[in-house]
Write a protein that binds this DNA or RNA. Structure first.
Lengths: 115, 115
DNA sequence: CGGAATCCGGGATGATACTG
DNA sequence: CAGTATCATCCCGGATTCCG
């Protein structure tokens, strides 16, 4: 029971590349499909759709459809996802602060290991 | 310059499934290869080695070799990685608190969408 | 004990085209 | 606008073997 929902699996689910991007992008309020597509550099339409579906299924996103023409769909974070967002921000902030350190560490490592 | 070290790439590097496990397992002090292998359920020897190398290259781990027989190798976190560890703990804590919520959300979603 | 090297299958991902 | 469908590819990661 509840198989497939261990802490490990849940973490690498929400911490996945595209999940993080979406969760961060949607944190400032409801956001539309196309806005996400533009905000997240490098994502394909397919991966955007798939990741949105997974996040919605996991109860992280609420999908709201406005039956207008043209159609309008907005995604917003659930309270649970908002809690997570704070933790994700800590990760991305750390990454920003240490980009250079990591880049330098790589250069040094590669210099020591030319093989 | 510094290509391949964007915030996005760095995040999904350190937030990867095995990286998180290793970073958490090594946070309490130096730990040996075999201890990691036992501590991290489901990891293969290959992935353990590869992930350790990447983390070492990125300056997250220090690898110390004791020239004894049998050989003894210990891994410990760098200060930079210790900072990251706090953020990772926040994620895993969140995951523990919300496992059930996610599992229930999935059941509800799947019940609504039987196709 | 702590790896490195090789082989290999399958799921993740991209590209493209079509639709209500 | 917000997707879906299909096909092709690629590389992640498991299994296995060998080594100092």
């Amino acid at each position: 029971m509840l198989s497939g929902c261990t802490v490990q699996e849940l973490v690498d689910r929400v911490a996945g590349k595209w999940s993080v991007c979406i969760l961060v992008a949607a944190a400032d309020g409801p956001i539309r499909f196309t806005e996400l597509e533009r905000a997240i550099s490098g994502i394909s339409r397919r991966m955007l759709t798939l990741t949105l579906r997974n996040l919605e299924r996991d109860g992280m996103l609420v999908r709201t459809v406005y039956p207008t023409v043209p159609p309008r769909v907005e995604y917003s974070l659930t309270p649970m996802a908002l809690e997570l967002h704070a933790a994700l921000l800590a990760i991305t902030t750390w990454a920003e602060r240490h980009r250079m350190d990591v880049a330098l560490a790589r250069e040094r490592y590669d210099a020591r290991t030319p093989l």
